[in-house]
């Protein structure tokens, strides 16, 4: 694979192309316009912001104490777990 890449660069240099132009060979599609790129990044970052805060909120909500407030941990016996089946 690396030999192929080197071959590409050698051929490109032989044709008188710059490094930037040779690199563009690897992207076969047309260059994406900056405006569309910015809009995509904007939408993705807004979604990430919302998702991150939802994750944090869910984590906080589910990180409370397991037992009810004021419960004595010593009062929990093995039988309580057996009944749960």
């Amino acid at each position: 694979m690396f030999n192929d890449l080197l071959q590409f660069y050698k051929i490109g240099k032989g044709l008188g192309l710059t490094k930037k132009e040779i690199n563009q060979i690897f992207f076969f599609q047309k260059k994406i316009p900056l405006s569309i790129g910015l809009l995509v990044i904007l939408i993705v970052s807004i979604l990430t912001f919302i998702l991150w805060n939802i994750i944090v909120l869910i984590y906080i909500q589910n990180s409370g104490t397991v037992y009810a407030e004021g419960a004595f941990y010593g009062s929990v016996s093995i039988n309580d777990f057996k009944k749960k089946k």
């Binding site: 809009l39 904007l42 807004i46 912001f49 990180s63």
Partner: peptide, 21 residues
Amino acid sequence: TVNMHIIVIVNLLIAFVINTI
């Protein structure tokens, strides 16, 4: 046990990107 700094830093970084655009 929540590291408040991580929440703030991640929010700040995402806000920086949104702000820039």
